[in-house]
């Protein structure tokens, strides 16, 4: 098979030598594997993007609590504040935080979301793509290209590390989602393949070691609020990369380090709810109330 792409280095060279965007290189590689056509991938991206928009729309309007009763009204509170007080980060960042919370709360209400890459991290990529697209007149087609760019980033990381909290901690879920979102954003802003790949490396370096210690074993605390945090994190990473700032550690080595960090992370901190936040005094008390 020509041009196998399993690393960011390979992706970069395909883009450079064939003068392709990341999403085109990614689509060509997917098609060469023979399992999906370009049309199928674009259709799935459109379907996911549509579900993302619906989840935001519904989530913005809802204050319904989660089944555990632990959350559900944070997006409402944030919107209320932004009605009277602007964020110091500006309008689009405000939207990103709000959309990330809206999606994430929809998820824990058992609403329909697009896992991207996982359900627990489902607010990060959509909030960044959709908020930026709305404020900058980005076409549907370019949003799909951005989502495919994000998908390619997740795919390459997943070659070395399973995107699951139980395997790599939250760095593998919300962390990777943040890197995917930074790639999508950099793509929409007209960044080069080099800038996009650097945005990924910068984002991943900064989430290294992030644990998965959900209270009561539910995708809720700290997952819901982590979504707006890591969505804004993606913006920072894109800004740095667009300025031409380079990750001194190349992206593939960052992924290697991340995979190793996941291995070294105690199983108590990998989705087992046996340590960290999940074993705090308050969490144990919540557990007694909720898991009857």
């Amino acid at each position: 098979m020509e041009n196998v792409i399993t690393t960011f280095r390979q992706l970069y060279y395909v883009c450079k030598e064939q003068k392709k965007t990341i999403y085109d290189a990614a689509l060509d590689y997917e098609v060469s594997k023979g399992e999906y056509s370009e049309y199928q991938i674009r259709m799935q991206a459109a379907k996911s993007l549509n579900a993302m928009k619906e989840a935001i729309k519904t989530g913005l309007k809802s204050t319904e609590p989660s089944p555990s009763g632990m959350s559900g009204d944070d997006c409402y509170k944030l919107q209320k504040r932004f009605k009277s007080e602007n964020s110091i980060l500006g309008k689009t960042a405000q939207k990103i935080m709000t959309y990330a919370l809206a999606t994430s709360e929809q998820n824990l209400r058992m609403g329909i979301i697009a896992a991207c890459p996982t359900a627990g991290s489902c607010g990060i990529v959509p909030s960044v793509i959709i908020a930026y697209a709305e404020d900058n007149n980005i076409s549907e087609n370019d949003q799909i290209n951005a989502l495919i760019t994000a998908g390619e980033v997740g795919r390459i990381v997943s070659v070395k590390m399973a995107l699951a909290g139980a395997v790599g901690g939250c760095q593998a879920e919300c962390g990777v989602a943040s890197a995917m979102a930074s790639a999508a954003l950099t793509q929409m802003r007209g960044g080069s393949a080099k800038q996009i790949i650097n945005a990924v490396a910068l984002a991943l370096k900064n989430v290294m070691g992030l644990t998965c210690d959900p209270v009561c074993g539910l995708v809720e605390i700290p997952c819901v609020k982590r979504n707006p945090f890591l969505a804004i994190h993606a913006v920072t990473s894109s800004e740095l990369a667009m300025a031409g700032i380079i990750s001194k550690i190349p992206p593939d080595e960052v992924v290697d380090a991340m995979e190793q960090t996941g291995q070294l992370m105690s199983p108590l901190l990998k989705e087992s709810s046996q340590g960290g936040l999940a074993k705090t005094k308050t969490a144990i008390a919540l557990e007694k109330n909720i898991l009857k």
Binding site: A26, E30, K33, E35, Y36, Q40, I41, Q44, A45, K47, S48, A51, S66, Q106, N107, L108, R109, M110, G111, I112, I113, A114, A115, C116, P117, A119, G120, C122, V125, L147, I148, A150, G151, E152, G154, R155, S158, V159, L163, M180, L218, V219, E220
Partner: peptide, 14 residues
């Protein structure tokens, strides 16, 4: 994995 695995499924949470 394919890109499709990463950006989907559309599903009921959480």
């Amino acid at each position: 994995s394919s890109i499709i695995d990463i950006i989907s499924p559309v599903m009921a949470g959480p």
